[in-house]
Amino acid sequence: MTEYTNKTPKTKSDMNFIQTVDAMNKALAMTNNLLTDMRGEFVEFRREQADFRQEHKELTQRVDDLELSYEITHDQEDNITYNVRRLAKELVGYPSYIYGVTCSDIYRFLRRNYNLASAVGKTEKRYYEGIIKGLNSYEEVQFDSDKLYEHKKKLDEAKKG
């Protein structure tokens, strides 16, 4: 009888072990299914997040473009005008026979090459920095006092005749 009692717990133990392994396999399968579902949701969430980031980037770009298309401020307009006059004074002096045509030539140069609007105040903000840089390059690239004297003489002759 001792042997029988010794065998019974082993069999129960074996049964409990098999049930435990079975339960653990089911739990692992459930955990695996849960992780798979969570991974799918995470991937979907990442896609949505990426879409949101792209939409945010596009919206930010549109707002930036809109802000840059505004006209320059009155202070910026005054700054351009002041710098054009200052440059003309440096190049030909004031008062000078060709001071006016020099200012006109600077404005023409900025309009052709640096997107200055026909009315300085109508210039878009995006071009302001380029215009300031253009003022610095005018003397090297465009300035020719002999041509400006000729131009001024032709204007004077046209007024007389």
Results as ranks from 00 to 15, higher is better:
E150F: 02
K153C: 01
M15G: 01
K89S: 12
N6V: 02
N83A: 01
V92W: 06
D37I: 05
M30G: 03
R47C: 08
D51V: 12
R86F: 01
E139G: 09
L34Y: 06
L91C: 04
K133Y: 10
G121I: 14
K147L: 13
A158L: 12
D14Q: 00
H74Q: 06
Y114L: 11
T20N: 11
R62V: 08
Q19A: 05
K152D: 05
G121D: 06
L59Y: 09
T5C: 02
E58Q: 13
K160S: 07
Y128I: 00
T60R: 09
R126Y: 09
D105V: 03
K159P: 04
Q76D: 10
L35Q: 07
K152V: 02
L148Q: 04
T11M: 02
G100M: 14
F109D: 09
E124I: 04
K57E: 14
N113F: 05
Y99E: 11
E90I: 09
Y82K: 03
I80T: 07
V21K: 07
G121S: 15
K122E: 12
N16V: 03
H74M: 02
V141W: 11
E129I: 11
K159V: 13
E71C: 15
A88S: 14
R108K: 15
G134W: 09
L68P: 00
I98T: 02
A29P: 06
M38L: 14
Y99V: 05
Y127C: 09
V120H: 05
F42W: 00
H74S: 08
T20Q: 05
M24E: 14
A27H: 09
R108I: 07
G134L: 13
E150V: 05
D51L: 15
T31I: 13
K153P: 01
N115C: 11
F17V: 01
R53V: 08
R126P: 01
T2E: 13
E129S: 15
Y4M: 10
E77N: 06
N32S: 15
K125M: 06
R108Q: 11
Y127T: 08
C103V: 12
R111G: 14
S104I: 04
K152Y: 08
V43F: 13
G93F: 14
R47Y: 05
I72T: 10
E140R: 13
G100F: 14
R112F: 11
F52L: 13
S137R: 14
T2M: 12
V101H: 06
E129H: 14
M15D: 00
M1Q: 06
S96N: 08
K153L: 07
L110N: 04
H56Q: 12
K89T: 12
R39T: 14
E157D: 12
L91R: 03
Y114C: 03
S69D: 14
L155E: 09
D156T: 08
Y82W: 01
T2W: 03
Q76T: 08
N6K: 07
R85A: 03
S13H: 06
T8A: 00
E140L: 10
T20I: 02
R112Q: 14
E41C: 02
T2C: 03
K159M: 04
D37W: 00
L155P: 00
I106D: 13
T73W: 00
M30H: 05
Q49N: 09
E157Q: 07
L59H: 10
M30C: 08
V21P: 05
I131F: 00
F45V: 11
E124F: 12
